[in-house]
Amino acid sequence: MKPVISEHETAHPLSLVRYVVGFVGCVVLTLTAYLLVTRSTWPQGAIVGTLALLALLQFIIQMVLFLHVTEERGSHWKLVTMGLMLSVVLILVGGSIWIMNNLNYRMTPQQIDQYMRSQDSL
C-alpha cells in the first residue's frame, strides 16, 4: 500500500518564496494603480485600460500564488470551473452593461417607468 499523502503535502508544497513574491507583486501593482489615479495626467481611456490591466495582473498573481489554482491535485477541474465562471461573469457583466446602456440611451426614465407600468398592468 503506498503511503497516503494529504492535500497539504502534494507534489508542490507551499513555499515561502511564492507567498513573498505574490505579496510584493500585489503591493507594487496596487501602488502603481493608486499613483496612476492620483498623479497621472493621462487621458481617461488610457487610465481605464491600464487600471484594468493592473487588476487583471493582480488577479492572476493571487490566483496562482495564493489560491494555487495550477498546482494541486485535481487542478484541472479547478481551471475548468474557473473558465466557466469567467465566461459567465463576462457574459453577465458585459451583457448587462450593453443592454442597459442601450436602453438608457434610447429611453428617458419616464419612458422606462411607463413601459414597466404597462408590463405590470398598473
Binding site: 465566461s87 451583457g95 443592454i99 442601450n102 434610447r106 419612458q111 413601459y115
Partner: peptide
C-alpha cells in the same frame, strides 16, 4: 449550457433596446 447564458434578452425584446441588441 453555454448558449443558454446568451439568450436572456428574448424575454424582453419589446423593452426598447436597439436593433443591434
Amino acid at each position: 449550457v453555454v448558449l443558454s447564458f446568451t439568450v436572456w434578452l428574448h424575454h424582453f425584446f419589446t423593452m426598447g433596446a436597439g436593433a443591434d441588441v
